[in-house]
Design a protein around this nucleic acid. Structure first.
Lengths: 237, 237
DNA sequence: TTAAGATTCAAACGAGCGTTTGAATCAGGC
DNA sequence: GCCTGATTCAAACGCTCGTTTGAATCTTAA
């Protein structure tokens, strides 16, 4: 029911007064980011978008489907770009493994591009994405794992070739840690700004990624622990 | 109003039918973990705890104050233990800087101990904590930053001594990444289990921390990037 | 035993939620 | 110019939410 785009098309009517669907998506992106999924009401959302309350259910079906649309609108192209960048790097390497640094860079650059592009949601979307990663709602978790599955699989292959001395299981966990640090960094720097006096380089995303990339690369390259070394439960042993 | 403990005390009445306050806290810990703060209703919560609906407002004042109590009950002792472990390590080092590995270990062990202690919430609480880190609600963010402030400050000092070649600002960011990977790992391994076939070492938390610690240590020790190196926006430059 | 206070309880409050409805409005093809 | 389907709109539906209330019950101490 009403799954099609609006009948009238042509060029975009205007920048300020866009499509009803687009206005809803834009407002939802901001509000979901600011308050989370549950705490954002359709009334405040439609009011912010200057559309009728019923418009969300008419155009998207439900609040959950709207959230899904908000995420996929940006996530799909970003992960696609990540895959393409990796493939480009692999072609340039010509059969040889791509270096760890280049793989991480290929992973970070689409996020950086998105963060800079205010017309595609900018940092708002990345923060929303980071929060979504921690959201317990099943439909969000399923959505994310579906969206990320292919990209992660490709990158795991690339890392496996770049780091042949790291076992597959170890690599799985390290990729897990990488995604954690990345999504956490994207999600809520403000949560940590409180005890981290970093006002100086505020909003400088490129510098942030320049700090994140070496951290992640070093972690990925770390020598695997031998079975002999154990985490001591008592400090003085 | 009624801020005191119940009048009757003595030894704990029973294990299964504990204090009303405790029963509420235990049920809240599980439900907040499973569904998040907003999506958990006081009706389902009090029903799970087998107490009257009004008991939450009577004993805790409000839903937000209950959430605060749930978090502080575990978080306060855990961060206290972290500080104590660090101080022990510093005494053992006798003036010399504590090694990076030992600092990270001191940070991880209280979390591991808590994860193993089912009587203190176990993994449930760590997952709740990781989710709380990404929650946009202001009262949660203020609570967490207040709870973590001292611990983070102490650890930053220790790391600064262990890693004198890392600038203070760089260190701030790296600690940020560490907390990200840590809280993300604590929060939702299941979210990632979908594309990570790690069933073999399921529930083996010690092994998980044995993998996490070297990753974080290597990231912390990574050589700082020179200003010359820039993140290339286009792969082929 | 009794008085006082702490705790539990059933019931209700008002507000806000996501969704549905059916009529009004709009656009474009014949 | 009218007809058809897509879109907008105000209003309402049924439900659940967090919180409050005031009486009933229990516990403790004098």
């Amino acid at each position: 029911m009403a799954s099609n785009r609006p009948a009238r098309k042509g060029v975009a009517t205007d920048v300020t007064s866009a499509d009803t669907k687009t206005r809803i998506l834009d407002a939802a992106e901001g509000l979901f980011m600011e308050h989370g999924f549950e705490a954002t009401s359709l009334r405040s959302l439609t009011s912010a978008a200057s559309v009728n309350l019923a418009a969300v259910n008419y155009h998207f079906g439900s609040k959950e489907e709207l959230f899904t649309a908000v995420l996929t609108r940006r996530l799909d192209p970003m992960n696609q770009e990540r895959i393409e960048l990796l493939e480009t790097a692999e072609k340039e390497a010509g059969g040889k493994p791509v270096t760890c640094e280049k793989i991480i860079t290929a992973m970070l650059i689409p996020a950086l591009r998105l963060a800079r592009d205010e017309k595609r949601g900018g940092k708002n979307f990345l923060r929303l994405l980071g929060r979504a990663y921690a959201d317990p709602a099943p439909f969000i978790r399923h959505l994310l794992s579906a969206q990320y599955a292919e990209m992660i699989a490709r990158y795991k292959e690339a890392f496996a070739r770049a780091l042949p001395h790291i076992s597959r299981q170890e690599l799985t966990w390290r990729l897990h840690f990488v995604m954690g640090a990345l999504s956490y960094t994207a999600a809520g720097t403000d949560a940590l700004r409180i005890y981290a006096q970093v006002g100086a380089e505020k909003d400088n995303d490129e510098l942030l990624l320049q700090r994140l990339a070496p951290f992640l690369v070093a972690g990925l390259k770390a020598p695997p622990v031998g079975d002999s070394r154990k985490l001591e439960l008592v400090s003085g042993d």
